[in-house]
Simulated scan of single mutants.
Amino acid sequence: MAFIGTLILILVATTIAGHFSARVGIPAVIGELLIGIIIGPGVLNWVHNSSALSVFANIGVILLMFMAGLESNLAQLRKVLRPALAVAVCGVILPVVLMGGVSLAFGYHFTEALFIGVVFSATSVSISVVVLREFHALDTRAGATILGAAVADDIIGVLLLSLMVALIGGGAGEHGNTNMGLQFLFQVGFFVAAYLLVKWIAPMLMRISERLLIPTARTVTAVVICLGMAYLAEVVGLSGAIGAFFAGIAVAQTHVKQVIDDHIEPISNAFFVPVFFVSIGLNVTFAHFVTSLPFIVLMTILAVVTKWWGGEIGARLTGFSKSGSRVVGTGMVARGEMALITAQIGFDAHLLANGLYVDMIFVIVFSTLAAPLLLRWALSKDDATAVSTSDK
Results as ranks from 00 to 15, higher is better:
Lys79Arg: 12
Leu147Arg: 01
Lys79Gln: 06
Phe115Glu: 08
Gly170Arg: 06
Ser72Tyr: 03
Leu104Tyr: 09
Met65His: 08
Leu44Lys: 12
Ala149Cys: 06
Ile93Pro: 10
Val80Cys: 01
Val24Tyr: 01
Ala137Lys: 04
Leu147Cys: 03
His48Tyr: 09
Asp139Leu: 05
Ile37Gly: 03
Ser128Leu: 11
Ile146Ser: 03
Pro95Glu: 10
Met65Pro: 08
Leu85Thr: 06
Cys90Met: 13
Leu161Met: 13
Val102Tyr: 13
Asp154Trp: 00
Arg82Asn: 02
Leu138Val: 15
Val29Phe: 01
Val55Cys: 02
Gly60Leu: 08
Phe135His: 14
Gly117Pro: 13
Ala86Val: 00
Leu81Tyr: 07
Gly170Tyr: 03
Leu64His: 06
Val130Pro: 07
Leu74Pro: 00
Ser126Phe: 06
Asn45Ala: 14
Leu161Asn: 02
Glu134Cys: 06
Pro83Ser: 03
Phe115Asn: 07
Ile38Lys: 14
Gly42Phe: 11
Leu104Ile: 06
Ala166His: 04
Ile116Asp: 15
Phe115Ile: 03
Val125Met: 13
Asn45Lys: 05
Ala122Val: 07
Val165Lys: 00
Val55Gly: 01
Ile62Ser: 13
Gln76Tyr: 03
Asp153Ala: 05
Asp154Glu: 03
Ala172Gln: 06
Thr111Lys: 15
Val92Pro: 12
Ile38Phe: 14
Ile30Thr: 10
Glu134Tyr: 05
Lys79Trp: 03
Ile168Arg: 09
